[in-house]
Amino acid sequence: MLFKDEVEIWVTAGKGGDGSKSFRREKYISKGGPDGGDGGDGGNIVFLVNPHLRTLSHIHNRQKFYAENGENGKRKQMHGRNGEDKVIEVPPGTVVWDVETGNQLADLTEPWNKTIIAHGGRGGRGNVHFKSATNQTPFYAESGKPGESYHLRLELKMIAHIGLVGFPNAGKSTLISRLTNARPKIANYPFTTLEPHVGVMTLDDAYTSVLIADIPGLIEGAHRGKGLGIEFLKHIERTKVLLFVLDVTDEPEKHFNVLREELKAYSEKLYQRPFLIALNKKDLLSEEPSQREQFFSRIAPCFLISALTGEGLKELKIALYQAYQQEEQKEFPDDTSSSQR
């Protein structure tokens, strides 16, 4: 299925049913009073977070969604049926924006949570409510109210704890396949990864696991629209820790500086995120790059690894988990179970 992380739609909640203008018509009662029932409420537009979804591809761009209208009131004070809600399923991490105002209406992260985005109109009252001492036969009933209507933009920002950042061919796809259960396409040419991937990294203890996201590789000038990675940086905005994956055989110092500048140009908040460094493709070196490793170790925790052979990955996994745990404890200092979030 084609990956899609942004779509515009229109939604309209159901109109409330009209109240009934009815009078009792029974044998031997020549002048029956009002007995018009109320109209039913219109259905709502409801967003349901489905944890099994990973993309917005099931929603067509510029698609229109309508909830059911409420039923009109009936005679004998019978209430009209409420309209059925229109439920739209979205993946976790979906942000709902009002296109007209630019306001964020919802940030949908909790699995199976339901959120009403557009409320249905209230049903009108039947004429039985308007009987009075001076008006025994009211010929008036309320009309149902229209439902809310919105022009929406849905934006998917994947939920992950750690984000991988690197140039094309730095080995990120191979690395995430070794660290987690993700199975991205892997090949030796640029932009193999055409969509973000999220995998679960588990340590020896089954309870200690975190989500890691891999995005398409960045290149210099990405913030000006070059390459593919800039389109997917929003998928690591929610992460607490970044891992810079650098090809140790291909100017890692230069690439690191470029990556940092691209992040800064995109988001100062993302640029300030704590990070670790993985010097990948150790298996291609004929000798230990001690000076290079020392250079990066002065910047951040640095690990010389080979995603292909698995060398150094155990130490990297532990360090990643510890870094994530530290950030969790900063956010939830009094919650001893925060590391299991």
Rank of each mutant, 00 (worst) to 15 (best):
A160Q: 04
V200H: 14
M201P: 00
K145D: 00
R178Q: 15
M158S: 09
S173G: 12
P190S: 08
S177Q: 11
L242M: 01
P216K: 01
Y150E: 11
I219T: 06
Q136R: 15
V245E: 04
Y140K: 10
G166H: 07
E220D: 09
K240S: 15
S209Y: 15
V200P: 14
N188Y: 09
F139D: 15
E231S: 13
T239F: 10
D204R: 14
G166M: 07
S132A: 03
K240D: 12
D214M: 02
N181F: 11
G166C: 05
H197W: 13
V245C: 03
N188E: 13
A206R: 04
P196T: 11
A222S: 06
F139P: 13
P168K: 04
F139Y: 15
I236Y: 06
S173L: 03
H197F: 12
D205R: 06
H151K: 09
V210P: 11
G163T: 07
G221A: 00
T137K: 15
V245F: 08
E220W: 00
T202D: 09
Q136Y: 14
E237W: 12
I230M: 02
L175R: 08
L233P: 01
S209T: 15
P146T: 05
V210G: 15
L154P: 12
T180R: 07
K131A: 01
E220A: 09
A222V: 01
T193R: 10
R183D: 15
L211M: 13
N135S: 12
S177D: 11
F191T: 07
V210L: 13
E231V: 15
T193G: 08
N169R: 14
G171Q: 03
K145T: 08
T239A: 09
L218D: 11
N188K: 11
E142D: 11
I162D: 07
Y207D: 14
K157Q: 13
N169K: 12
H161E: 11
L154S: 05
H129E: 03
S177W: 07
G144L: 00
N169F: 06
D214Y: 00
K172P: 10
H151G: 07
G229W: 03
A213C: 04
